[in-house]
């Protein structure tokens, strides 16, 4: 075991020897999403004045599943749903010009409770950019944040989530990604090295 750990640390410096470990299997991920849906319904009831907004791209994938889970728990729930892209608002835009994703907010955000949804909350920069985008659409009554994974020890902005699937303690250099497994099902992986 000790030899394996030593080998992992040594080889991690070489890009080809990065280690990938499944943090949340598809079934665990489904379980967490269903628990998040339950928390949202508990807090907001029929979600009448609520707009769920997924952040491109990982957040939209989670939000799509969350919408299904909410409808399963409360088929009468009436809420707005949209997708938000932060590409034009990134603070690291000059490092790399990225192609934008689709932006789709087909409702007025004015006075609504907007729940931003993302896959991983890490430094908080994405959420800060998402808030900037949202405020260019209007003045929401309240904004809450719902994330599947929280890496709270690495925050660079004073941003915290209201709903968290699961928190993980990770190294700053590690990456946590939402990926598809060989069957095309979503899972969350940790990439170290």
């Amino acid at each position: 075991m000790l030899i394996l750990l030593w080998l992992k640390n040594k080889l991690a410096f070489i890009p080809y020897f990065r280690f990938m470990q499944v943090l949340l299997s598809h079934s665990k991920l489904k379980e967490l999403i269903s628990s998040l849906a339950k928390q949202l319904v508990e807090k907001h009831g029929s979600l009448n004045e609520v707009a769920l907004v997924g952040i491109q791209q990982g957040g939209v994938a989670i939000a799509d599943e969350l919408v299904v889970a909410i409808r399963k728990q409360d088929p009468e729930a009436k809420f707005e749903y949209g997708q938000l892209d932060i590409t034009f608002y990134r603070d690291d835009i000059r490092k790399n010009i990225l192609t934008p994703d689709r932006m789709n907010l087909p409702f007025a955000v004015e006075d609504k409770t907007v729940i931003l949804i993302d896959d991983v909350l890490f430094t908080g920069r994405t959420i800060k950019a998402a808030l900037d985008v949202l405020l260019d659409y209007g003045r929401p009554g309240k904004v809450e944040l719902c994330v599947l994974v929280d890496r709270k020890e690495h925050r660079q902005f004073p941003i915290q989530a209201d709903f968290v699937g699961q928190a993980f303690e990770t190294d700053r250099k590690d990456k946590i990604k939402l990926v598809n497994d060989e069957k095309g099902n979503k899972q969350v992986v940790l990439i170290t090295g």
């Binding site: 034009f88 608002y89 835009i93 260019d136 659409y137 209007g138």
Partner: peptide, 9 residues
Amino acid sequence: QRPVKKVPS
């Protein structure tokens, strides 16, 4: 088409 037709890019 947005109310604020401007981005900070």
